[in-house]
């Protein structure tokens, strides 16, 4: 990471600077310590005990909860679902978002209006979104069935068929979050200096070559920023799946966060819920570290 500390004459004494750093970051860190890190530490402790939130005692069971979780076939099925969901939603949001942004980046009329519509699902609450979409997905009277009917297709039984349920929740997730990606891409596109395109044209590059050599590299920092934030959001996406399918049919749309909720808040198994939370945290932490390294090294220009 590059650091561009400004040195002011009166802060040559570094300790004074350290103190200032502490004062500025301190309140944020203090609040997080009490309301976010402490629960994580407590959760880490719970992952080594057997407890149901109600008993007076919490017997220490070493790694039993971890062994139970990792030997459970359901856990690995859910890990697989989480992987599919995250890759598809993050990939879908980033790629479709880019496509949309490129198309509506042209100097078109009503561009602001279109942007507002594209962004509006971002501000809708997940529960309302899920309810509206369950109407759209119904294979007998849903809006999607009517629309597919116009082109002579039959609607699959989206929320009931174990094969189609995952695509359904992915579609809704992308629908809800694509606006965020589009807006950021649009901003990124505006930030690419025009003279780069002109230089490329002088070199005889066609539209495709310009896109490949100028637009894409210009957008890479945006894509990295989006991927960090959208991976973290996607991993913790709860409302939409909970209301649309509750992880079903069977476990077809159950992800780690749903599993964590089920273990903790329905099964009252604080230990195994603790394990799943630690797994989730560890995965996100490692992924973010890798991305940050890459982001900071490859993308800090301009």
């Amino acid at each position: 990471m590059t650091s561009r500390a400004i040195s002011f004459p009166w802060t040559k004494r570094k300790h004074r600077e350290w103190l200032l750093f502490g004062l500025l970051v301190g309140p944020n860190l203090a609040l997080f310590s009490i309301f976010t890190y402490w629960p994580l530490i407590y959760n880490f402790y719970l992952s080594f005990v057997r407890w149901n939130f109600l008993r007076p005692t919490k017997p220490w069971v070493w790694f039993n909860n971890y062994i139970d979780t990792f030997t459970d076939a359901k856990f690995w099925e859910i890990m697989g679902n989480t992987l599919v969901f995250t890759v598809a939603t993050v990939g879908g949001t980033l790629l479709l978002g880019l496509l949309l942004a490129l198309l509506i980046n042209q100097p078109l009329r009503f561009r602001d209006g279109a942007r507002a519509i594209v962004f509006s699902p971002v501000v809708m609450s997940g529960a309302v979104v899920a309810v509206v979409w369950s109407y759209i997905f119904d294979p007998r009277y849903g809006l999607l069935d009517q629309i597919l009917g116009w082109v002579g297709l039959n609607s699959p039984d989206w929320l009931v068929d174990p094969f189609w349920a995952m695509p359904a929740v992915i579609i809704v997730y992308i629908w809800k979050n694509i606006g965020y990606a589009v807006v950021i891409y649009l901003a990124g596109l505006q930030g690419i200096p025009r003279d780069l395109y002109e230089a490329a044209r002088v070199d005889g590059a066609g539209a495709w070559a310009q896109f490949w050599n100028v637009t894409l590299p210009g957008l890479s920092p945006v894509a990295f920023f989006l991927s960090v934030t959208s991976i973290l959001t996607s991993f913790q996406s709860f409302d939409i799946i909970k209301v649309l399918t509750n992880g079903g049919p069977v476990n077809a749309t159950s992800t780690l966060i749903l599993f964590l909720y089920e273990l903790g808040f329905v099964s009252y198994d604080a230990g195994e819920a603790g394990v799943v939370a630690m797994v989730l945290f560890t995965i996100m932490f490692i992924l973010t570290l890798i991305q940050l390294r890459y982001l900071e090294r490859q993308v800090s220009y301009g």
Binding site: V160, D161, P162, G248, P249, V250, N251
Partner: peptide
């Protein structure tokens, strides 16, 4: 319930 889904749907 999930067992029944396996039986009825799958």
């Amino acid at each position: 319930g999930k067992g029944l889904e396996r039986i009825v749907v799958n």
